[in-house]
Write a protein that binds this DNA or RNA. Structure first.
Length: 281
DNA sequence: GGCAAGGGACGTCACAGTAA
DNA sequence: TTACTGTGACGTCCCTTGCC
């Protein structure tokens, strides 16, 4: 996913390049839905959904399965951290969001407010170094020194990233175009700004809900909510697919185990038959 | 090399289930 | 009741493979 504004792009590095086809895709989907609302195809589709959507989740199925069969592993509630994080930052604060600037720097926002910034390594986020927004004292050895201004003149919190950019935590939602804003609910707003400029140049990564009165603000809020919902659903779909794959793998391994078990039982049966049956020469 | 088929992965929508 | 979550369905993109 890329968010463009001026010369700045953020990208979640673990994601594929979400091509511009998404918009066309969306339009096509909506168009088709509208066009064929009365068609029989939709009715069939609805019937199918009625049947299929009543299935419990993969997590539930597999966990029930695993409670019956000790050998079947449970699907964890959360992904293991190794899956979530690049290998070279395993010993540091675990980032929940990783973004990449157009200059190749990585910015990871971890749980608890820790921000990690890295210069581009040979692969992924190698060389990531931690900046923690806490009062915990000295930074860890080898950490990139990032200047932090708790409150600047324009009422924002700023992180001066070595290079030429500033990571800004804003107090109010900025006027970024809605399609560029990745709204994340109550999360604080972060922007990348050129340090000398007064106007925000970066991408609003999250918008904080304020008092909304005008229709424009309401529209922006609706857009923000929609963006948030889409983003969450995107992540949910990824997680769902991951669980589905895991579920299928578990079923396959269970099939393998049961086949071996079946084979053993057949052999045992044959042995018992040989023992019990009278030999006729 | 060009092309079509197949498959994997993705984003989005719709909707049922669940938690608050 | 409402907001949120999980998942099937669908359309699209991209890559691989086999055929010509």
């Amino acid at each position: 996913m890329w968010w463009h504004q001026h010369n700045l792009c953020f990208r979640h590095p673990v994601e594929e390049d979400y091509s511009s086809g998404d918009l066309g895709n969306k339009v096509a989907t909506i168009a088709e839905t509208d066009e064929s609302a009365e068609s029989e195809g939709v009715i069939d589709s609805h019937k199918r959904r009625e049947i299929l959507s009543r299935r419990p989740s993969y997590r539930k199925i597999l966990n029930e399965l695993s409670s019956d069969v000790p050998g079947v592993p449970k699907i964890e509630e959360e992904k293991s951290e190794e899956e979530r994080t690049p290998p070279n930052i395993a010993t540091m604060a675990v980032p929940t969001s990783i973004y990449q600037t157009s200059t190749g720097q990585y910015i990871a926002i971890a749980q608890g407010g820790a921000i990690q910034i890295s210069n581009p390594g040979s692969d992924g986020v190698q060389g990531l170094q931690a900046l923690t927004m806490t009062d915990s004292g000295a930074p860890p050895p080898g950490a990139t020194i990032v200047q932090y201004a708790a409150q600047s003149a324009d009422g924002t919190q700023q992180f001066f990233v070595p290079g030429s950019q500033v990571l800004v935590q804003d107090e109010e939602t900025e006027l970024a175009p809605s399609h560029m804003a990745a709204a994340t609910g109550d999360m604080p707003t972060y922007q990348i700004r050129a340090p000398a400029t007064a106007l925000p140049q970066g991408v609003v990564m999250a918008a904080s809900p304020g008092s909304l009165h005008s229709p424009q603000q309401l529209a922006e809020e609706a857009t923000r909510k929609r963006e948030l919902r889409l983003m969450k659903n995107r992540e949910a779909a990824k997680e769902c697919r991951r669980r589905k794959k895991e579920y299928v793998k578990c079923l396959e391994s269970r099939v393998a185990v049961l086949e071996v078990q079946n084979k053993k039982l057949i052999e045992e049966l044959e042995t018992l038959k040989d023992i019990c049956s009278p030999k006729t020469d």
